[in-house]
Structures are given as C-alpha cells and as structure tokens.
C-alpha cells in the first residue's frame, strides 16, 4: 500500500467513526482538493431503451430514432435548475459545437433532463438559448419514468437529481460502442476523443 493510499484509508476510517459521508467528502476535499477534473474514459455497449421523450420543440420522439439518426452523437444528462455542474457541462457542449464550425449540424448533441416534471420544452428552449445551442443540439424531457429509463440505460442514475455526476457519452455511428467519459471533460479533450473515434471508424 502506498503512503497516499494508507493516508486515504486512515481518513476514511476517521470519517466512518463520525458516521457522516458528507464529512468524509469534506475532509477528503480539504486534504486533496480536486484541482482538475479526474476523467475516467471507458468503452461500453448500451442498449438504447425503446422509449418516447419530448423534444425541446414539444414533439414526442423516439429515443432510439433520435440517437440512431445516422450522425455521430454526443449525449449528456442535465437539469435546468442545476447550479454548479450542469451549466458547465452545457458550456462544454456549446464550445464543442462552436469548434465544429460549419460541420456543427453533422454531429447530433443530445441533452436529456433528469428533472422532467420541472423541465418543460419551453424551459429547455430557454436553457438552450442561454448556451446559444445551434440546430444540431437538442434537449429532451419526458415523464419521470422515461427520464429514469434513459438514465438507467446509460448508467447515470444516482438516486436523485442533486447527486448526479458529470458523464459525457459519445458514439460516432449506429452499431458502434459508446465512449463514456466520467468527469468534466474539457472541450479540447472532447474534440480529441471525437476525432480519434471518427478516424478509427
């Protein structure tokens, strides 16, 4: 066991003694503030559930149809009342789309709400406008059940909306596996991942 690990175990044991998960996070943060997002990149096959969602133009759409429209697809999960993490994830999508330039319509960016009862299509449109979303980027809402089904299918459900974690999913073509990025990716890193996958297709 490395010294750092032993240290962390000791901290975790202390936190357990206090019986508070929150305190343990705070303590770990205090000792090791995450200066930069730690990324975990994996390749995963997901089965897209056959569910209907409501797109930000108020149309009912099928999730598989939206995902399998032939274009490369980027997917994340957000909610419009979210304070810290979602605005950052959306800003990253916005920058990614900007960097695509003339090709921006050739990549499908999808953001699914994890707070569907609050996030009406109208609210989603306002949210998208705030990030100057171009035509290739759609936001989706639905019922609690369909939003949950989508979250579970992509393994991003964390019990409630305030516990959500930043995850970006990327797939260059239907049938291909997904590239999953856990953590806050930078627009540059995301673009590199995208170009690499596209070249390997």
């Amino acid at each position: 066991m490395s010294r750092a690990n032993m240290f962390n175990v000791a901290i975790a044991a202390l936190a357990l003694a206090a019986g508070s998960a929150a305190a343990s996070d705070a303590e770990l943060m205090a000792q090791n503030p995450p200066v930069r997002s730690q990324l975990l990149i994996s390749t995963v096959q997901y089965t897209v559930p056959d569910i209907k969602l409501v797109r930000d133009d108020s149309k009912a759409v099928s999730l598989p149809d939206e995902i399998n429209d032939g274009r490369p697809v980027l997917l994340n999960f957000i909610f419009t009342s979210c304070g810290s993490v979602c605005p950052l994830m959306s800003a990253i999508f916005a920058q990614f789309q900007q960097r695509l330039g003339d090709d921006s319509g050739k990549v499908h960016l999808m953001s699914i709400s994890i707070d569907p009862e609050q996030d009406t299509p109208e609210r989603l449109r306002a949210y998208a406008a705030q990030f100057e979303a171009g035509p290739g980027w759609q936001h989706y809402t639905g019922t609690l059940a369909t939003s949950l089904a989508a979250q579970r299918a992509f393994d991003v459900y964390r019990g409630d909306k305030m516990s959500h974690a930043p995850v970006t999913l990327l797939r260059v073509a239907p049938g291909q596996p997904w590239r999953r990025i856990d953590g806050l990716v930078t627009p540059d890193q995301l673009m590199r991942e995208y170009r690499t996958l596209l070249a390997a297709r």
Binding site: G83, V85, A91, I92, Q130, M162, S163, H164, A165
Partner: peptide
C-alpha cells in the same frame, strides 16, 4: 477549461447559494 460564463449563470449564488454556506452537489 476555457469556458466563458456571464450574467446570472456566473453569479456566485448559483453554487455558493444565497446563504453563502455552499452546498453538496453530487
């Protein structure tokens, strides 16, 4: 990461809350 934010989206309150006591998110 080179992401510009402005106005209400950049306001301190969005993360640190009205109380200034912060919060837990994920």
């Amino acid at each position: 990461p080179g992401v510009r934010i402005r106005g209400a989206a950049a306001a301190c309150v969005t993360c640190h809350r009205r109380s200034g006591l912060g919060m837990m998110e994920g």
